[in-house]
């Protein structure tokens, strides 16, 4: 089985931003974007996210697996939320409202009355802006952030050393565990075990995975004892760790950090102090259906 990291160095502007500044920006964006349903703020955040995403220089071909997942979730949300259930849209859209088709519409010669309101339709657009904005921040991470930097980054952001080291260690274990998985799979195939096209219902499919999962898991557990002993002998956990991957802030990182502070403080003040973050439908949208 081939397991490979999606990251590659592109010499993009994103490659030159410190991973700590990037995490801080992404979380500041998440908090700011989830504090409002006002379309003007959401549109502004969407444009900021678009600029941020472009800094990564990634291609559609590279990122499409992530986007497929997001678009599927978004489609389900819009279809169920806006079209099928017509619920309160998370308590944001007030009940009632102006129907998109007040007299119904013609479908194969029959008049269909459908309860979709202009307010719910606008809410769906706001949802798209918010979810795509947040997604652009987080989808970019695997493609533009070196996996070797995670341990040092999380430790430097205040995560306990042991936890940061666990992340680092897990990243290092992945290639050898993927290899063990391949060896086990080949060994089971040699015994005539069918893995590529498992027939039957869900229960039999899951049950058939056991001869693969159990040996790989038990082998991993057996080998971990030796690793723990070796770490203990080298005095693991006795003092503050140093990291091979060195992180240093540059001038542009401070710009990103400053912008993150403006984003989060500005967003929260606008929403919770000035009360500007509420859901509103602009007049031009009503005019479209007049």
């Amino acid at each position: 089985m081939l397991v490979s990291w999606r990251y590659k160095y592109r010499n993009s502007p994103m490659d030159h931003i410190d991973p700590r500044a990037r995490w801080i920006f992404s979380f500041a964006f998440l908090i700011a974007a989830t504090s409002t349903w006002n379309w003007m703020f959401l549109l502004t955040y969407f444009i900021i996210a678009l600029i941020w995403y472009r800094l990564g220089n990634t291609t559609w071909k590279e990122t499409r697996s992530g986007w497929r997942l997001v678009l599927f979730m978004l489609f389900m949300m819009i279809v169920i939320n806006t079209i099928i259930t017509g619920g309160g849209a998370g308590g944001v859209v007030p009940p009632g409202g102006q129907l998109v088709w007040p007299n119904g519409f013609n479908l194969f010669g029959k008049t269909v009355h459908f309860g979709l309101t202009i307010e719910r339709l606008w809410f769906a657009i706001c949802q798209i802006l918010r979810v795509l904005g947040i997604s652009m921040n987080f989808i970019l991470i695997p493609y533009t952030m070196d996996a070797r930097s995670y341990g040092a980054t999380f430790s430097s952001l205040g995560m306990p050393d042991k936890l940061a080291y666990t992340t680092e260690l897990a990243i290092r274990f992945i290639p050898s565990l993927a290899r063990n998985f391949s060896v086990t799979m080949d060994a089971q195939r040699a015994r005539g075990f069918e893995l590529d096209d498992i027939k039957g219902g869900i229960f039999s499919k899951i049950g058939r995975m056991a001869p693969l999962m159990i040996p790989v898991t038990m082998n991993a557990i057996l080998s971990s004892e030796d690793i723990a002993d070796a770490m203990d002998l080298r005095g693991f956990g006795q003092g503050k760790r140093t990291w091979l991957y060195e992180l240093r802030y540059h001038r542009w990182d401070y710009v990103v950090l400053g912008f993150s502070a403006i984003l989060i403080i500005g967003g929260l003040v606008a929403s919770y102090v000035l009360h500007l973050g509420g859901f509103v439908v602009p007049q031009f949208f009503y005019n479209l259906f007049a």
Binding site: T217, I221, D232
Partner: peptide, 21 residues
């Protein structure tokens, strides 16, 4: 402690590999 650090790391890597597989 150290043992749990290693088990957690092995577990996380295993979960990632098996999830993809």
């Amino acid at each position: 402690e150290t043992k749990q650090v290693v088990f957690a790391a092995i577990g996380a890597a295993l979960y990632a590999v098996l999830a993809i597989a």
